[in-house]
Design a protein around this nucleic acid. Structure first.
Length: 267
DNA sequence: ACGAGAACCTGTTTGC
DNA sequence: TGCAAACAGGTTCTCG
């Protein structure tokens, strides 16, 4: 969202090429026409959704799913559609914004700007982890009595919005909490650590990503930028990085998702 | 209400 | 080497 904002805000969309009828769901009626000729007034994010507010009083809602990418192709450079390029927006400077998504778990919708908060996809989201509504008290109350593993509870977007598999694994490691702990069994100090480390994990990731995204004009498809900072994710069999811990990173599957953790220092 | 698993898709990696 | 299974940054739906 931060990479797209300077390229889109204040610009007019002069062409919308919608190259297939759907992603995860069908696109809204006449999406291409409704996007053409409107100005992008601003961009914002709610959980993992990107919202572009338009001069037509509608907002373009975007979710990248698992494999989705939004890439910018500079004006003057020739653009030839790549495989899985599904939507191509061209602005009044000739800059193209391309939604590419091989697995098509992503989504796009057009919604009334003043009803964005009540959209079905957004209505049930929990608090933003970097906002004031996310706190020891709010998380504790949402987890109270829950017997589901804390790993699953943190992936549940109604408890806290915007955490994915990587950041949940990393935050639990930083907090020294086992992913198999029942969500409702975590004591107050554990909740306090969890809230703090969720925030720190996200801010570290955003900081690392921000520097890499400065090269967005190249749109060369370069992959993740926080991956070099993972303590446990994808590191099964590697030594635990916590100082003084001699454990080995393990992997287990919870609710169909891989959890990476150190059973020596996470309890 | 809660929690686990399947489903949606394609591409890449792993294992026999 | 070749093929099949497993796995992948997510979310919703169904079922017990």
């Amino acid at each position: 969202m931060r990479g797209l904002e300077p390229a889109l805000v204040g610009r007019v969309i002069v062409d919308a090429d919608v190259r297939r009828p759907d992603l995860r769901w069908p696109f809204p009626d006449r999406m291409a026409e409704r996007l053409t000729g409107v100005t992008v007034l601003g961009m914002r994010r709610r959980s993992k959704y990107i919202l572009a507010d338009l001069s037509s009083h509608e907002s373009l809602l975007i979710h990248l799913g698992m494999s989705g990418r939004l890439m910018l192709y500079q004006q003057d450079l020739p653009y030839a559609a790549q495989k899985h390029d599904h939507v191509v927006l061209t602005n009044d400077q000739g800059l193209r914004t391309v939604f590419n998504d091989p697995r098509r778990f992503g989504a796009m919708d057009l919604i009334s700007t003043d009803q964005a908060d009540t959209h079905p996809l957004l209505a049930k989201l929990g608090p933003e982890p970097l906002g004031n509504d996310f706190s020891d008290e709010s998380l504790s109350s949402r987890l109270a009595g829950r017997r589901t593993p804390i790993k699953s509870a943190l992936l549940d977007q109604s408890n806290v919005a915007g955490l994915g598999n990587i950041y949940v694994c990393e935050a639990l490691w930083r907090a020294g909490l086992s992913p198999v702990r029942h969500a409702g069994d975590i004591d107050t100090p554990g909740i306090e650590r969890l809230v703090r480390h969720i925030r720190e994990t996200l801010t570290d990731a955003i900081d690392a990503g921000g520097s890499s995204l400065k090269d967005y004009r190249q749109a060369d498809g370069e992959l993740g930028y926080f991956q070099h900072s993972f303590a446990v994710y994808g590191r099964e069999g590697a030594p635990c990085q916590r100082s003084g811990c001699d454990g080995i990173v393990e992997r287990l599957v919870q609710s169909g998702r891989s959890s990476f953790f150190c059973s020596s220092c996470q309890s």
